Simulated assay, not measured.
Amino acid sequence: MGYKNLFFDLDDTLWAFSLNARNTFEEMYIKYQFHRYFDSFHHFYTLYEKRNIELWAEYGVGHITKQELNHQRFLYPLQAVGVFDENLAKAYSDDFFTVIPTKSALMPYAKELLEYLAPTYNLYILSNGFRELQYHKMRSSGIDGYFKKIILSDDIGVLKPGPQIFNFALSSTQSKPENSLMIGDSWDADIVGAHGVGMHQLYYNYVGRTDFSFLATYTVNALKDIKDIL
Rank of each mutant, 00 (worst) to 15 (best):
L152N: 04
R139K: 14
L223E: 06
S213K: 12
A216Y: 07
E178T: 13
F130W: 13
W187M: 05
K137P: 01
G208T: 01
N221I: 05
S127D: 04
L215D: 09
E178Y: 13
L126Q: 05
V158Y: 15
G184L: 04
P163L: 08
F212T: 09
Q201R: 14
Y121I: 11
D190Q: 06
Q174M: 08
Q164S: 11
V197R: 02
F130P: 04
D154P: 01
D225A: 15
Y204P: 00
S171N: 11
Y218M: 04
G193D: 03
P161Y: 14
L230I: 12
K149F: 03
P177K: 11
D154V: 03
S153D: 03
L202C: 15
V197A: 04
F168N: 05
I226Q: 11
I156S: 00
Y218A: 06
R131S: 11
K160D: 02
Q134D: 06
S140I: 07
V220A: 11
G129E: 09
T219M: 14
L117H: 08
S180A: 14
V197E: 01
D228Q: 14
I143A: 06
V207L: 15
S153V: 01
P119R: 06
Y121E: 03
A189M: 03
G184Q: 03
A118Q: 13
F130G: 04
F214D: 04
Y206E: 09
F212Q: 09
S175T: 05
Q164W: 08
K149N: 12
I229Q: 08
Y146L: 11
K176E: 14
E115P: 01
T219I: 12
Q164I: 10
F212A: 06
I156T: 12
L181N: 00
I191L: 05
L133R: 04
F147Q: 02
R131Y: 13
A169C: 00
S175K: 09
D155I: 05
Q201W: 08
G184K: 00
N167R: 13
S213F: 04
I183S: 08
Y218F: 13
E178C: 09
I156N: 04
L181Y: 00
M182W: 03
L215Y: 07
G157C: 03
E178L: 11
I150R: 01
S172L: 00
L202A: 04
L152W: 02
T210H: 10
H195Q: 14
Y146A: 09
N128M: 07
L159Y: 13
K160Y: 02
R131W: 06
I229H: 05
Y135V: 13
S213T: 15
M182T: 01
Y135F: 14
L223H: 02
S127F: 10
Y135D: 05
K160V: 09
E115H: 10
I226L: 06
R209L: 14
A169S: 08
L133Y: 04
H136R: 15
G142V: 02
G162P: 04
